[in-house]
Every structure is written in structure tokens, then in C-alpha cells.
């Protein structure tokens, strides 16, 4: 199985760095054959071609609208009506729609996200609660790399200690 992992976010805006940071740690620890890991500041158009040759794509991102520390995993469907007004994609589901439209291929696609507590400018550190979410994100991506496409919510969605109670999360399959 060919798998692509893309962590994205700004490395200088506090917890927004969760995506690329988890991707870097994943790659440093080593990944199985057939898995490629990328870190990106933003999602840009050339990534569409990278998606086209994969069976599964896993995006890693920070969430500004989730409880701090809460880790969610959900399956993504192509957003065919999304049209970014700029050259950056604002949503991985739009990338997926491009891939399907242009290359006639739709990889299985998942988003693992963690709620951030601080997105301040010129901040190079994760907050403690985001730092605790890193291991859960790594655990989630490793499960998906191990072909566990259908993962019960209880084992794949959690939150770091001291996070407020989460609302009902999306499911991963």
C-alpha cells in the first residue's frame, strides 16, 4: 500500500506547528516501505499530483475550533464545491476533489487533528497540552499506516489531560 502523510501548519505560530512537527517526528522515528512523509507550511497545488499515486493519504493538522488537546480522526471526502480564493488550499478536501477530477483517482483520505491552545505569532513552542497530544497523533497515524482503516472512536479519539470535555467527535471510518 502506498501511503502519504502530510503534516501542515506554521512552525512559528505556537500550536499550529502540530501537523509538521508530528510529521517530522514520525519520519525521524522511521516509517515502513511505501510510506512517504511531508511537512508543509500550507497546502499548495503541486500536492494534487502527489495524492494521485497513493492508496491512502493522511493529513496532520492543528484545529483552532476544537478543545485544546483533543485529538480527532476523520475520513475526508472530496469537497467538490470548495474553491479557494488564493493559491493556498484552505482545506485538504479541496485537494482531494482536484485529484479526483484531474486524475480520476480518489485515495482513502484521513485527517488527524488536535485542538491547539495558542496560535500566537513568532511563537516557536507548543503549549504543554498540545505537546501531550503529539503522542496521540503519532499513535493515530501509525494505526492508519498499519491499515487499520476502521478504528473505533474510543481508541482513536482522545484528549490530553486537563482538556475540557469534548463534544461528540467525528468517526474515523
Amino acid at each position: 500500500m502506498k501511503i502519504l502523510v502530510i503534516g501542515y501548519g506554521s512552525p512559528i505560530r505556537g500550536d499550529d506547528a502540530l501537523g509538521p512537527l508530528v510529521a517530522d517526528r514520525l519520519e525521524s522515528a522511521g516509517v515502513p516501505d511505501g510510506v512517504e512523509v511531508m511537512s508543509r507550511h500550507v497546502l499548495t497545488v503541486e500536492l494534487v499530483a502527489e495524492l494521485a499515486g497513493r492508496d491512502r493519504v493522511i493529513f496532520l493538522d492543528a484545529a483552532a475550533d476544537a478543545a485544546p488537546g483533543r485529538v480527532d480522526c476523520r475520513r475526508l471526502e472530496p469537497a467538490r464545491d470548495a474553491v479557494s480564493s488564493m493559491a493556498h488550499f484552505l482545506d485538504p478536501a479541496e485537494l482531494l476533489a482536484w485529484c479526483e477530477t484531474l486524475y480520476g483517482h480518489l485515495p482513502e483520505c484521513f485527517l488527524i487533528s488536535a485542538g491547539g491552545a495558542s496560535f500566537d505569532y513568532a511563537n516557536y513552542r507548543l503549549t504543554p497540552i498540545a505537546e501531550r497530544a503529539v503522542e496521540q497523533m503519532l499513535d493515530g497515524v501509525r494505526r492508519l499506516m498499519a491499515d487499520e482503516a476502521c478504528i473505533p472512536a474510543a481508541t482513536h479519539q482522545g484528549r490530553a489531560a486537563a482538556a475540557p470535555s469534548p463534544p461528540e467527535p467525528d468517526t474515523c471510518a
Partner: peptide, 24 residues
């Protein structure tokens, strides 16, 4: 919009992506 371009001329849209990919 770009989906309109992709429908009308998918080869052109793919060429654009490939050039971006080569530069990157």
C-alpha cells in the same frame, strides 16, 4: 474557476501542476 478549467482542459491543468511539482 479552476474546476471549470479542469473540466474544459484537464491536460492544461495537469501541466500546471507538473511544472509546479518540478520547481518545488
Amino acid at each position: 474557476n479552476l474546476f471549470g478549467v479542469m473540466r474544459q482542459d484537464p491536460a492544461l491543468a495537469k501541466d500546471g501542476i507538473r511544472l509546479r511539482q518540478i520547481g518545488q
